[in-house]
Amino acid sequence: MQTALPHAPGLPHAPGIGYKPQHYGALMEGATSTDGPVGWLEIHAENYMGAGGRPLAQLRHLSERFPISVHGVGLSIGGDAPLDDNHLARLRHLCDWLSPASFSEHLAWSTHDGAFLNDLLPLPYTDATLTRVCDHIDRVQEALGRPMLLENPSSYLAFAESTWDEPAFLAEIARRTGCGLLLDVNNVFVSAVNLGFAPQAYIDAFALDRVGEIHLGGHDEEADDHGAPLLIDSHGREVADPVWALLDHTLRRAGPRPVLIEWDNDVPAFPILEAEAARASRALAALEPVSA
């Protein structure tokens, strides 16, 4: 597999937002759309697999104005069954039509026995999982004719049978397949609280040279059976302060990267999302200039 730097020449090292149709007008008509902090957009691939209509028409207009990242949520790369050829063909069709700056998917599974479960389900980190995930990523990259980014999950539990830690597991996948990584800093924080590890240590162990994109999103706080905090990756509110601090830590070590604000539930008015993007912009601007 070719190993071109996954973040070059793809997305700009600027904030992006997860695109929601209710913000189409603000993005296309607002004076802020080109001067504001939002430098690119991410779409969920599965929302743009119809034959036509408004979704594809709007996406075509948006893509003339913004670099687009296509983020898949339904490929089930960690599934123990073979990848769905029909879905792979649909992804290929979308990427051929749109020529997005980036394509990414998740270290997770979501389909079993033909049933799509609509959640990112967890995997044990074993040699068997590693082999299967790498085979699937090879197939995706071959089918799409481009390298992909693989995103770290948010975890609510762990498997007793795991023999790898997550950063090493992801680094090994990237090494074997040539894929890049999508580092979701909120997921790191959520998993760290839920599973009891230090989030900075996770970042420090991560293959940051492979990171082509960073995600930020909001989480909710609940409690488990023992009263321990259990964070839920809900994407329904502002990014939490400790996650912003973890972003600063990540950027200081990794250098500038494309940073996405994800807000999928209880979607706010555009100015609120724009304010989050502006905060990401300040985090990027706070970095020492990197010599070329």
């Binding site: 959640d119 007793a160 009891g196």
Partner: peptide
């Protein structure tokens, strides 16, 4: 959670942490 030896990250049984996935699936569908 018991059948699959799911844990909470500190070695304890995962218990109702598995329900996060149950809830996500049912509520999102």
């Amino acid at each position: 959670a018991e059948t699959l030896a799911l844990r909470d990250g500190r070695g304890h049984p995962a218990g109702r942490r598995f329900s996060v996935y149950r809830n996500n699936v049912a509520s999102s569908l």
